[in-house]
Nucleic acid binder design. Sequence first.
DNA 1: GATAGTTTCATACAACTGTTTGAATTGCAA
DNA 2: TTGCAATTCAAACAGTTGTATGAAACTATC
Lengths: 221, 221
Amino acid sequence: MASDHTRSAILAAAERLYADRGFGDVTLRDIVAEANVNLAAVNYHFGSKDELIAELFVTRSIATNRERLRELKAAEEQGGGRAPIEVILRALVGPTLRGCLGPANQRSTAARFMIRASIESVPPIRRIKNREIDHLRKFAGAMRRALPERSEVDIYWGLNFALAMAHHTIRESERLTKLSEGKCDLDDVEDVVARVVSVATMALTAGKVEAKPRALARDAR
Amino acid sequence: MASDHTRSAILAAAERLYADRGFGDVTLRDIVAEANVNLAAVNYHFGSKDELIAELFVTRSIATNRERLRELKAAEEQGGGRAPIEVILRALVGPTLRGCLGPANQRSTAARFMIRASIESVPPIRRIKNREIDHLRKFAGAMRRALPERSEVDIYWGLNFALAMAHHTIRESERLTKLSEGKCDLDDVEDVVARVVSVATMALTAGKVEAKPRALARDAR
DNA sequence: GATAGTTTCATACAACTGTTTGAATTGCAA
DNA sequence: TTGCAATTCAAACAGTTGTATGAAACTATC
C-alpha cells in the first residue's frame, strides 16, 4: 500500500492540467512532469491513461450524483413522499451549477475539470455518462409523483430541458458573457439556478390549472 | 483549376467518416482511402487537416445561418419590422433542429456531421464557433424589438435557453430516447421545434401581461 | 509537339503517443 | 541485518500521426 503519495499526486496533476488545457493536448508526459513522478507511474498505478481519466471522472461524478440524491431525498421526505416540482428541479440542476459556475478564481479544480468533461467528451468519459440513465430515472420518478396529472412524455421533455439549460449554460458560459457584454452575471450562481428552475417549472406546468399561482421561484428553498 | 474531382471527393469522404466515427479516430489515411486519393492530396488541396475540417464546418455553418436569417428577415418584413417572438425563436432553432433531427435513415450526411461537431468540439471548429456571436446578436436585436418592455438581461437568458434546449436535444437525443423508452419521439421534428419554441417563449414572456393569451405555439408559423 | 503549370503519387520524415521492460531503489517484516 | 515485496526509474518500444519531398503523370497553351 505504501504512501499513496504518487497516486494522488498524479490524480491532482491530471485534474489540474485537464481542467486548464483540455484532454486534447495534455499528454501523460505533461502529467508526470507536473506531478514530479516517473512516466511509468501512471500505468503502474492506474493501468492506462483512459483508466486514469475514468477514475477522475467517476469520482467527481458520483459526488455530484450523491449530492443531487441527498437533496431530492430530503425534499421528498419532508413532503411525505412527494416534493414540489421546483425543489426536485433544484436538486437536479443545483449541485452541477453550483459546482461549475461562480467566480472563476474561487472555482475549484474539480469544477473546472467537470466543465472540461462536459465540453470535450472523450471516449472513457462518454462510456461512463451512458450509465447515468438509471440516476436520471430516479428524478423522472420523483417528477411523476409531483405532477401525477402530467403525461410521461411531458415529464421527460421537462427533465431534458432542465438539464439542457443547466449544461448549456455551463458549457457556453463564456460565450453568454461575451454576447451579453457582461450583463448576464454567471457568477451569481443562485440567480442562474433560479432562472433554470423557473423556466423548467413553467415548461412542466404550463397549460395546467396551478394549485396556487407561484412566484418565480427565485427565492425558493 | 482542372476537374476539382479530388478536392470534392476528399470533402465528401471526410464528412462521411467524421459523421460516422467522430473526429477522434478518423485519420487522414482513413479519409484518403475512403476517397481513393493519395495521402498528399489533403495537404495539397487544403493545406492541413485542420483547414479541411474548418472548411467542412464553415460550409455547413453558413448554410444554416443563412437559412436562419432568411426566416428571420421574412418574418420581420411581414410584421413591419417587428416579428412575434415565437416566430423569431422558430427561425433561431428551427433550421438546426430540422437539419439534425428526424428519421435517422433520411438524415443527411451533412446533418450527422453537424451533430458530431456539436458533440465533439475539436479545436478548429471551436475557433469558428467563437465568431458566431455576431450572428446571434442579430437575433438578440430582433427579440428586443419584439419584446421592448423586457430587460436586456432577460432577452439574453431567453436566447441562451432556447439554444440550450435545441442543442442539448440534438446532442443527447439518443439518451433522451433511451431514458423515455421511446416515448419522446425525436423523429417528429416539428413537435420538437414547437416544444422548444413554446418553452423559450414562456421563459421570455413570463411575469408580463401578455397582449393576448397564446396557445402553445405548436402550430405557429 | 514542346513547354509550362498543375496535380498526383510513393515514400520518407520527424515528432509524438501510450505502454512495456527490467534493473535499481525503497520500505517493511522477520 | 536479511529477505521480499512494492515502488520507482531510465530507457526503449512499437505504433500512429500529420506533413514534406521530389519525381512522375497529366493538361492545356502556344
